[in-house]
């Protein structure tokens, strides 16, 4: 077999330093609490704070809403394109990846300009936040639905089910969704990782999401900021690990909540 090359080892060590040292530094900083307190004091005070749980719940709830929007919006269109209108598939793909060209800060500016001054239910901040998150996660939801549909026999299964007298609703819930469940879960957890720490959109709309909570806490408590950073890293790790475990697809996000 090939021997390990010196150049690669050098690159590997540099990468290890660059990626691991900040984590160590952050963890070390989060433990530097005043004397007389246990080293985990910063974590304890965060985990005890009601705001932490409220903001996390809000962010994850909104991520769930974004996933739901993605399902309602992408699954029917992509399914029908696979079944009857393959010509339209590039168009659906085009619309689904279009959010990439509209940075979050531009998206929220556009939404606020157009709807904030009154468009009935559309002017509600929650609707705007959910809509914006739906847009931001649309490319990833599309990709996971597309992967799922590609790996199943859409035409054959649908025609067999319809031929046996199943209704369209039944086809959707008993055939299509269960078949693409795995890739959908992958897309869902990627969306969770993406939305969890989102800041630009939610701060502009005046929500106390996890990202906003992190910034506000970090401005006043240095150790708390470091501890939150570690907690966020662990959460992202959990979501990405589940995502890679269920979908075996090295999906990644571009743009989004950076």
């Amino acid at each position: 077999m090939k021997r390990v090359s010196l150049g690669s080892v050098f690159v590997g060590i540099l990468a290890l330093l660059y990626f691991v040292v900040p984590l160590i530094a952050t963890a070390q900083f989060s433990f530097q609490v005043g004397s007389g307190q246990p080293f985990w004091a910063a974590y304890a005070s965060i985990l005890r704070s009601a705001q932490f749980w409220q903001s996390l719940r809000l962010s994850l709830g909104m991520a769930l809403a974004a996933v739901a929007i993605g399902l309602i919006v992408v699954v029917p269109a992509a399914y029908w394109a696979y079944l009857r209108a393959p010509r339209l598939k590039p168009w659906i793909e085009f619309v689904s990846i279009l959010p990439f060209v509209v940075p979050p800060i531009v998206l929220v500016l556009g939404l606020v300009r157009l709807y904030a001054t009154g468009f009935g239910p559309l002017s509600s901040r929650v609707t705007l936040l959910m809509g914006a998150y739906g847009v931001v996660s649309l490319p990833y939801m599309f990709r996971s639905v597309d992967t799922g549909l590609r790996s199943m026999n859409v035409k054959g299964l649908t025609e067999a089910a319809l031929g046996l007298g199943a209704s369209w609703v039944r086809v959707m819930f008993r055939i299509v969704l269960p078949n693409i469940r795995q890739s959908l879960l992958g897309g869902a957890f990627l969306t969770f990782a993406l939305i969890m720490g989102e800041y630009a959109i939610s701060s502009m709309l005046g929500f106390n999401t996890f990202g906003v909570y992190m910034l506000l806490t970090g401005q006043t408590e240095a150790q708390g900021a470091a501890a939150l950073s570690i907690i966020a890293f662990i959460l992202v790790w959990i979501f990405v690990a589940i995502m890679q475990w269920v979908s075996r697809d090295a999906l990644t996000t571009v743009g989004g909540s950076r």
Binding site: L23, A25, G197, G211, A226, L228
Partner: peptide, 25 residues
């Protein structure tokens, strides 16, 4: 996969602890 999604506020905090004026490095 994790690091490419670890961005925004927590990333800024992590680098402040590392390379900020009183960061470890």
């Amino acid at each position: 996969g994790v690091a490419s999604n670890f961005a925004g506020i927590p990333l800024a905090f992590a680098f402040t602890s590392t390379l900020g004026p009183v960061g470890l490095v």
